[in-house]
């Protein structure tokens, strides 16, 4: 009798979890959704009669013919297409990085590669390109080899969608362990519960890390760094010089000025908000007009 009652209760819990999964797949959009919506608005009218594949082929041909400006224009135009998947968008951004590198614009190339890695973080070729571009740009390496850099790299090795699925699926061992503990009790099941709980917490870390990352990240691409000011005008107090290659969050824009928030690479001075000329920074998210 006891076992039958327990199985009924377990069945109810499983149904609830399945319901949560179903809700998950139809739930609220992740930040990329808004970007895609922006793309639709900006790009729907641009090349309505040309497919992204055709644009890509034309850009590749121009690149092969060493017509870098045409290749860049086509790939930039293609990035506006709402039909592009994130992975395809990342590939185009990598190719735009290649164009910038061939044109000796290494800071811009490094920024394109970094942006591409946000969408396709495990692409080894793009990571190698980014390391090379950062070295050529005179920026410090993205992965310094210390514990903090390694942790960031591990946690950032998945996209935000993947991180969310990992956090959800990491609940399965915990569900099994909790079910066993409820039905059977005993020290072994309790221990299994603790282990499964630890696994779930580990599984949520990429998701937590992804949620803490800037929604609209930018990287400082001005060779000598960006002069940060308290207000969006050249006569405002100059607070500091943001080092080239450092990553910040874009929180606002006004004319030719962009408002940034962050603590820089070291984080020594704490989180602050500053204004810099928009031409000194590069938006890493693949929204329409990125990097322009």
């Amino acid at each position: 009798m006891t076992t039958i009652d327990g199985l009924r209760a377990l069945r109810a819990v499983a149904c609830a979890i399945l319901a949560a999964c179903a809700l998950a797949t139809t739930g609220a959009a992740t930040p990329g959704t808004q970007d895609a919506a922006d793309d639709v608005v900006d790009g729907s009218a641009a090349h309505a009669d040309v497919t992204p594949a055709e644009l890509d082929a034309a850009a590749a041909r121009a690149y092969r013919d060493e017509d870098l400006s045409t290749a860049e224009a086509l790939w930039r135009e293609g990035l506006r297409s709402p039909a592009l998947s994130s992975r395809e968008r990342a590939r185009w951004m990598t190719n735009l990085g290649n164009v910038a590198a061939r044109d000796d614009r290494w800071t811009e190339a490094a920024a394109w590669f970094e942006g591409s890695l946000l969408l396709r973080p495990r692409d080894a070729a793009t990571r190698a390109k980014m390391d090379h571009a950062r070295a050529e740009a005179g920026w410090p390496p993205a992965d310094r080899g210390d514990l903090a850099s390694t942790t960031r790299r591990v946690l950032g090795a998945v996209t935000e969608d993947e991180a969310r699925w990992i956090a959800l699926f990491a609940l399965l061992p915990l569900a099994v362990a909790l079910g066993g503990e409820a039905l059977r009790g005993g020290r072994a099941w309790r221990r299994a519960c603790w282990i499964a709980l630890a696994l779930w917490l580990v599984g949520t870390m990429p998701c937590v890390y992804a949620s803490l990352r800037p929604v609209d990240p930018v990287v400082v691409t001005a060779p000598g760094g960006a002069a940060a000011r308290s207000e969006p005008r050249t006569s405002a107090t100059r607070l500091e010089r943001l080092p080239a290659g450092s990553r910040w969050e874009r929180v606002d824009a006004l004319g030719e000025w962009t408002k940034l928030r962050g603590s820089g690479e070291s984080g020594g001075a704490g989180v602050r908000e500053v204004w810099v000329p928009s031409s000194d920074v590069f938006r890493l998210r693949p929204v329409a007009g990125a990097g322009e």
Binding site: T25, G27, T30, T33, S85, D161, R164, W165
Partner: peptide, 13 residues
């Protein structure tokens, strides 16, 4: 590149 994978679960889920 191929299509994207399924969109991740929502915060609520």
């Amino acid at each position: 590149e191929g299509p994207d994978g399924p969109r991740g679960p929502s915060d609520g889920a």
